[in-house]
Amino acid sequence: MGVWRAILWRGGVGAVFAVVLLPLVAVVWLSFFNQEIIAFPPEGYTWRWYANAWSQRQFASGFLNSLEIALIAASIGVTVGTAAAYALVRARFPGKTAIAGLLLGPLAIPGVVLGTGLYVFFVQIDNAIDFQIVATLPGLIAAHVLLTIPWTVRLVAASLQGLHPAAEEAAANLGARPWTVFRRVTLPMMRAGVVAGALFSFIQSFENLELTLLLTGPGRSTLPVEMLNYLEFRVDPTLAAVATVQIVLIGALMLITDRFVNISRVVA
């Protein structure tokens, strides 16, 4: 009786994790199918869809745009987010809780609502000063910075919380200048949080769809948006190859992040 219950429990739990991972496995498998029309089991396996995906302009340019946007947005977001997290943990000032809440706000507002807000805001600026922001890379980067700030603040603040300011005070008392204290003491202490913040920020920006959707234009689109447009017509091995590249990229970034922080503490 107890044995059967244990088997049933484990089987059920295993099934839950399997169902979550199943679509990822399916899409990786499909990317190697020899034939273009989906049929199970496949006739054979090939790598050629990866070359084919890269030769399709919308995927290549979408990938490069996403890469550029995510790199720049993460650099900006990590810089200002780290500074903010440091101030929130170490300094005392009025309204700290409210400011912390504000900085985490972009995570609380649904992407669709925030995306529409940014769209009308950008169009308003376009009209007011005759300077195009909608459907430009700077516009997309500005929007994505919003995604990177809360993740950085959260991760860096969490990594600072457990550290005592005594080391910094000691360095200052021993005559180190503020910049030296920051560079030689504070920054190394925050390293794990900053690295994790940078990687998560990059992933959030690279994978974002909702916030991005209205802000794209011809040639100024991101990979998830190009994939969505393609998928509204069909799913085939070429698209699966594009998806697989993303899965591998994110998997690698996650494994790197895992070396720096305890990942289960990051999301919950």
Binding site: L22, P23, L24, V25, A26, V27, E207, N208, L209, P224, M227, L228, L231, V235, L239, A240, A243, Q246, I247, I250
Partner: peptide, 9 residues
């Protein structure tokens, strides 16, 4: 991994 990739799966 983005929702689009999982929907493709």
């Amino acid at each position: 991994v983005g929702n689009v990739v999982r929907a493709a799966g």
